[in-house]
Structure formats: structure tokens, C-alpha cells
């Protein structure tokens, strides 16, 4: 069954019947829930933060992964950002020695414009600030992991130490002090660029404009409107990887 048909079927069965019970908000996808009515949840009003990752410049050194881990103290083996690495060969039918290439895919929270993680939170612990940054109030989070399930990008996890939902915050605490996020600061190739989309003269707007034909986001079909934009991305990496899986620790234990 294709995804449109599935969406339609779930809408008529799950959606339509709910309206009288819980109000229109649950049933209609049109309303975007941000949970940011409180004054301390506004962030930097007037801005809209986003990130561009120029894959042509990423060498897969994991400096961003290390920088983030040191800055944000995520437990060992759990990552707010990391660089996934793939080995790619072209099967063009030639019998000669195949040229093997690497493909690097830095991954982090996409700070979606339509964040599915925010809407499901049963206690409004996760919210999206006016500047687009999706945050978790971990003093309120009950760690039901509903948001972890709802994120189509596996960008969230339950932090083993705080036992609450955890994710990339674009280093909001650093941005507020005028600093760059740790991953941007440590990126050796300058592949990661953060900026304000509402500022027409920002570097991020210049990059998006210059490369507008080569900009991709992850899973565009989910309609989440991700705000991490990739330059130089192959479309076979945007939605679901088809290939050979990674070799995991057979016990699935801690890293």
C-alpha cells in the first residue's frame, strides 16, 4: 500500500472519529503545536536558526561529535550529533577494480518547522522556541519516550544519566552568548554553518541561495520541514538507506 493511501486510511479511521472527543487540534495536521506560550520559552524572537551542512567539505573526522560530547556531556555511547559513514561503490557493470568511496552524513536534530516530537509530548516538556530551536525542559520531562518514537530522524534518545529525553539544541546556550555551537566551532573543514534565516545578509542565506539547486533535506516526504540543509547530498541518502547494514555489537550492549 502506498503512503498516500495509508495516510488517507489512517486519517479517516483515526482522525475523523476523534474530533468530538478531544478537539480539532489532535485530528488536524494543519495546526502546528509548539508548546511555547510561557515567556521563558520564546528564545531569540525574530530569528529563525537553521544549519547548512556542506557535505563536499566533510571529511568524517568526528571532531563535531567529540566537540558536542564535551560541550553537552552526553553519556558515552549516546550522541546529540554524529557523522554516519558509508562505503559506496558504483555498479556500472565494469569488471575492473572498483573504486570505493566514502560518504559522510553528519546527523543532528533537524529543528523542523513542523516538529512531530513536540506535538506528542504529554506534559509539554518539549517545545519549539520562536527562533525555531526545539528544546526539552528536562525538569518537566517524564521520559515516556513518545518523542523519541515520533522523531522520524532518530535524533532523540533517553539520556542514560539524566533519564530524560535528550537531543541537539543547536547549542542554544552558546548562541545566546554570541558563540557558535560546539560542532560548528570544531568542524575542521567548515562544513557546518549555522545562521539566521530571517537575516537576508546572513552566510546561511548566501549559501542556500548560491546552491539552491543542490540543497536537500532528510525525509522531505514526512512534511516535517527540516531546517538542517545539506549541500552535495545524493538523493539515495535522503529517506531510507538501502544497502548493507552496519556490523553492530551482537549483544547490543553499551559502546
Amino acid at each position: 500500500m502506498d503512503s498516500n493511501k495509508r495516510r488517507f486510511l489512517s486519517a479517516i479511521t483515526a482522525g475523523a472519529a476523534l474530533i468530538p472527543i478531544v478537539g480539532v487540534n489532535t485530528a488536524t495536521a494543519g495546526t502546528i503545536i509548539r508548546n511555547n506560550d510561557e515567556p521563558d520559552r520564546k528564545g531569540q524572537v525574530g530569528k529563525r536558526y537553521a544549519m547548512v551542512v556542506d557535505l563536499r567539505k566533510c571529511v568524517g573526522c568526528q571532531a563535531c561529535t567529540v566537540g558536542c560530547s564535551i560541550e553537552n556531556q552526553a553519556p558515552i555511547g549516546q550522541f546529540r550529533t554524529t557523522v554516519k559513514q558509508y562505503e559506496v561503490t558504483l555498479n556500472d557493470g565494469s569488471q575492473g577494480v572498483k573504486e570505493v568511496k566514502s560518504f559522510m552524513l553528519p546527523r543532528l536534530c533537524n529543528h523542523c518547522e513542523n516538529p512531530p516530537c513536540v506535538a506528542v509530548c504529554p506534559v509539554q516538556a518539549t517545545f519549539q522556541r520562536e527562533d525555531g530551536i526545539v528544546m526539552v525542559d528536562n525538569s518537566r520531562c517524564v521520559a515516556c519516550a513518545y518523542c523519541v518514537q515520533a522523531c522520524p530522524y532518530d535524533a532523540r534518545f533517553i539520556n542514560e544519566e539524566t533519564l530524560t529525553a535528550d537531543k541537539c539544541t543547536f547549542c542554544a546556550h552558546r548562541l545566546e552568548k554570541g558563540l557558535l555551537p560546539a560542532c560548528v566551532e570544531t568542524c575542521v573543514g567548515g562544513a557546518r554553518v549555522i545562521g539566521d534565516l530571517n537575516d537576508p545578509s546572513s552566510e546561511i542565506n548566501r549559501l542556500l541561495k548560491e546552491n539552491h539547486q543542490d540543497i536537500k533535506v532528510l525525509k522531505p516526504e514526512e512534511n516535517t520541514k527540516p531546517h538542517v540543509f545539506y549541500i552535495g547530498m545524493d538523493e539515495r541518502f535522503t529517506s531510507h538507506i538501502e544497502g548493507k547494514p552496519a556490523i553492530y555489537d551482537p549483544k547490543g550492549g553499551e559502546a
Binding site: 478531544v22 504529554p122 521520559a143
Partner: peptide, 26 residues
Amino acid sequence: GDLHQPGRAWHFYAYITPWSWMSMGS
């Protein structure tokens, strides 16, 4: 038990969220 923070179960009633099924369930 499935909440990693079972002691915070009362948050369901302190922060009512009618658009979340889990909150309705509480």
C-alpha cells in the same frame, strides 16, 4: 514502569495536554 521517571507521573495532571493521546490517556 515504562516512564524512565515514574516519580514524575503527577506531571501528567499538572500540565494537561489535550492534543497528545498519552495525556488524554492519563
